[in-house]
Structure formats: C-alpha cells, structure tokens
Amino acid sequence: MADILYFHQNRGPAPEPLWREVLGRSLRATREEQGGRLVDVAERAGISPQYLSEIERGRKEPSSEMIAAVTGALGVDLAGLLADIAGDVRRLRGAGPAGPVLMAA
C-alpha cells in the first residue's frame, strides 16, 4: 500500500484561527440551518443587513452586545454558541499538515 510522506518546512506553528471568522461562520451556519434570511435576522437584531453580513464573513469584530443581539435574533443560547466556537477553534488549530504532501505508490 502507498505511504504518505509529509514534507515539513520550517514555517513554525500554524497561525491561530481568527475568532471573529470562526464566530461568523458559526452564525451564518446557524442562520442557514434555520432557513433564515440575512435581512430578517438583521432586522430582529436591530442592525443593518450589511453589518450582519460583515460579521458572518469575519470582517468585523462585533461587540458583546452585537453578538447577544444576533444570537437573540437567531434564538440560540449564547453559552452553547461560544462552546461550539471554542471546539471549532481547537479543531482548526490542529487541522491537517502545514506543508506539501507527497503521496508515494
């Protein structure tokens, strides 16, 4: 059977994922799972659709009040969301090789 050889380049440790990006992906996934439209969730949260879009894309670092408003608009538990995000950050930190992979036959 084939062996997989990893070529490690001296790049140092993989960079930590940005919290705002992981938060945004989680919020978007939650909204999409619920079948919610961005404009509707933004209206319930009291923010503009553009701002919610920027949060979901990880472009903005929302305040705790904004995060609470969005989670409230989605009807999700803030503590549960934060626990899920912490798990995602842990998984992303250890995801895959950090360099080229050569598959030999």
Rank of each mutant, 00 (worst) to 15 (best):
L27W: 10
L18T: 07
S53T: 02
A42I: 02
R93C: 03
D40C: 06
A98E: 13
G36T: 00
V39W: 08
R44P: 04
G80T: 12
I55P: 13
V41P: 12
K60M: 07
S64Q: 06
D84E: 15
L27N: 11
G24Y: 08
P97F: 04
Q34W: 07
S64P: 01
P49A: 09
A29Y: 03
D88F: 02
R20S: 11
R59N: 12
P100L: 09
I47Y: 03
G99T: 07
G75E: 00
E54M: 15
R90G: 03
D77A: 10
I67A: 00
G72H: 03
E21R: 09
I85Q: 12
I55E: 05
A95D: 13
V76G: 03
L27C: 05
A104P: 02
E32L: 13
R31N: 07
I67H: 06
G99N: 11
R59C: 00
V41N: 12
A86S: 14
M103I: 13
L23N: 09
E65N: 06
A95M: 07
A73G: 12
A73E: 02
Y51F: 15
L92K: 02
S63I: 06
E33W: 08
A79T: 10
A69C: 00
E43W: 04
S63V: 01
D88T: 06
L102D: 11
E54S: 13
